[in-house]
């Protein structure tokens, strides 16, 4: 480490050697490298879709409308309306990745906060918060989505809100369970002994020690969120129907799988690769946070 006092430089409050560890964990593991590279590529493709996409995703070519084909002009073929699939995939990544990352992040922040507070304080706080979470859990998220669309109309933010709503309870329960065991650890009492307040103990002592399963949960739910978004699109309560999303593309191609397999296979493969990439990267992230090196790193 750089200085002899252990006064490591920090970046937004995170010690830089954590990033070094992360870099080592990713660079030293080809699976993690693959995960990070694919996810980064997909994210870049989504961000720069207007510049990179060879065609307007809405532009139809009537000549090849009825016969989706693979050609040098359309490397991934066209869909049943003659729209370029590669362009639609790039634009679709914006919605799919944005919605899933946004929804799971919101769900994680709200859920983990609830779970940590409930588990740390216990007693009636725990009872009250967890019953609230039970109510969220018992409420069908599809109904929430329909309700939001009915009130606010269709839009990306409503989709994010509905999916985030569905994931709050997963994070809350997981975080609470971890905190229940961590708060009995002696280092929590030791933190109390040096005069650290409840908030400090929760964020400095408890949460960092609960982070590993939460990261895994995060990567798993990203995958489910992409599928949830496609469910909403399929039901017609997702984003606007003509907007391309991976889930919607998958749904549209389903009926044509006999004639034009690529319309559904391409978005399907993209979803699988994204989910795999996020999972592999998540494992590396978990190992990097696990300073004891007990994680299953190969």
């Amino acid at each position: 480490m750089s200085t002899d006092y252990g006064d490591a430089d920090t970046f937004f409050g995170v010690r830089l050697d954590r990033f070094e560890r992360l870099y080592e964990a990713v660079a030293g593991d080809y699976k993690a490298t693959f995960g990070l590279v694919t996810v980064t590529l997909f994210v870049l493709a989504a961000i720069f879709a207007p510049e990179l996409a060879p065609y307007d995703p809405m532009a139809q070519e009537y000549a090849i409308m009825q016969a989706p084909s693979l050609s040098s002009a359309h490397p991934l073929g066209t869909d049943s309306f003659g729209r370029d699939l590669l362009s639609r995939m790039m634009y679709g990544a914006r919605v799919s990745l944005g919605v899933s990352l946004g929804a799971v992040t919101i769900g994680a922040v709200v859920g983990v906060s609830l779970g940590v507070v409930a588990g740390y304080f216990g007693g009636w706080v725990d009872d009250a918060l967890m019953r609230f979470v039970d109510v969220l859990w018992a409420f069908p998220w599809l109904l929430v989505a329909i309700m939001l669309v009915a009130i606010f109309g269709q839009g990306v933010w409503n989709v994010i809100a509905a999916i985030a709503f569905a994931y709050i309870d997963d994070f809350a329960r997981l975080a609470r369970g971890e905190v229940l065991s961590i708060r009995e650890e002696e280092f929590v009492l030791a933190a109390k002994n040096i005069g650290l307040g409840d908030l400090g103990i929760m964020t400095e002592e408890v949460l960092p020690n609960a982070v590993a399963p939460l990261i895994v949960q995060f990567t798993v739910l990203i995958a489910r969120a992409i599928l949830a978004e496609s469910t909403l699109s399929f039901l017609g309560i997702g984003v606007k129907p003509t907007t391309p999303t991976w889930g919607a593309l998958l749904g549209q191609g389903r009926s044509l799988i006999g004639q034009a397999w690529w319309i559904s296979i391409v978005p399907g493969v993209a979803i699988v690769i994204t989910v795999l990439g996020i999972n592999l990267f998540g494992d590396a992230l978990r190992d990097a946070f696990d300073v004891r090196g007990e994680g299953g790193s190969p």
Binding site: G6, E185, A190, E204, P208, R292
Partner: peptide, 27 residues
């Protein structure tokens, strides 16, 4: 101040020992 029997369980495994010792000073 209280010194615990088992220092391993009384130190946060995710902080360097320097951070653990320095923390009371900022608190």
């Amino acid at each position: 101040q209280y010194v615990f029997q088992d220092p391993l369980s009384a130190l946060n495994p995710r902080k360097t020992v320097g951070e653990s010792v320095a923390r009371p000073l900022s608190v």
